[in-house]
């Protein structure tokens, strides 16, 4: 199976804080890989490094055929990143925002229209797309940002807590969108501290705490290994 991400001994410090401490794991092409752990575990830091936003201190990361830190521009062409706390330009309408972002991935007018069409469908916002983003609710903003992250069909989508702060209905809609998208061949790396969500979505999961990876496996494997009924129980066992 082909690798989408290979991480070897990746570390990152902020001053004295070791946010990520020598972690290693692999993500296969086409799977949904979940990163779960409590607040401050280092999930966001890891994802930001993969997204070329933060620089790693040490270790190696390969994203498809490119080495992180050497070929960041090529990496940016094949990934998309949904930040944990993201916003959109308040002054633009939803549609104008999608068009602006699509502009960076399209080479021709036809490309642009195709990407935009996917984005409009994914956002599921209908006529509200013509309104300014400043008038959107939290859930609507999150939907348009997710649509933005997936519309150009990146080879790797990095999603940091895609459903944080959303109600049950919106969360389920977003989960379904992600699942559908992954089945079309997109690799998804997702983080959450909502372990039930990760259990439902992910093919494989890494448990992360205080910058260390505790264990990796499919939800079924992990539940068997730690004798837990769900990933929450698994995690509680694993940190012991």
């Amino acid at each position: 199976m082909k690798h989408a991400i290979v991480t070897e001994n990746l570390s990152k410090k902020f001053g004295e804080i070791k946010a990520v401490d020598s972690i290693s794991f692999e993500v296969y092409e086409g799977e949904i890989f979940g990163l779960i752990g409590p607040n401050g575990a280092g999930k966001t830091t890891t994802l930001r490094i993969f997204s070329t936003i933060l620089r790693k201190d040490s270790g190696n990361v390969f994203i498809y055929d490119y080495k992180l830190g050497e070929d960041d521009e090529s990496i940016r062409k094949i990934i998309s990143y949904l930040p944990e706390e993201a916003g959109a330009y308040k002054n633009l309408t939803g549609l104008a925002y999608l068009e602006f972002m699509a502009g960076f991935y399209a080479d021709t007018k036809e490309d642009l229209q195709r990407i935009l069409k996917t984005g409009i469908e994914l956002s599921d916002l209908g006529t509200r797309l013509k309104d300014k983003i400043s008038t959107y609710s939290k859930g609507m903003t999150r939907k348009i940002l997710l649509a933005r992250a997936l519309m150009h069909k990146p080879k790797l989508a990095i999603l940091d807590e895609p459903t944080s702060g959303l109600d049950v209905i919106n969360s389920i809609e977003i989960r379904n969108t992600i699942k559908q998208f992954a089945s079309s061949g997109v690799t998804v790396l997702i983080s959450s501290h909502n372990m039930l969500e990760i259990e439902y979505l992910s093919d494989r999961v890494a448990l992360i705490d205080k910058g260390h990876i505790l264990d990796i496996g499919s939800p079924a494997e992990l539940k068997e290994r730690y004798n837990g009924r769900n990933l929450e129980e698994v995690f509680m066992e694993a940190v012991k």
Binding site: R48, S51, T52, I53, E73, R76, K77, I79, S80, Y81, L82, P83, E85, A86, G87, A88, Y89, K90, M101, F104, Y105, L145, R148
Partner: peptide, 14 residues
């Protein structure tokens, strides 16, 4: 302030 910079910095722009 609007948390748009991170998204922009991961887009394929120099």
């Amino acid at each position: 302030e609007n948390k748009t910079l991170e998204t922009l910095m991961t887009a394929p722009i120099k």
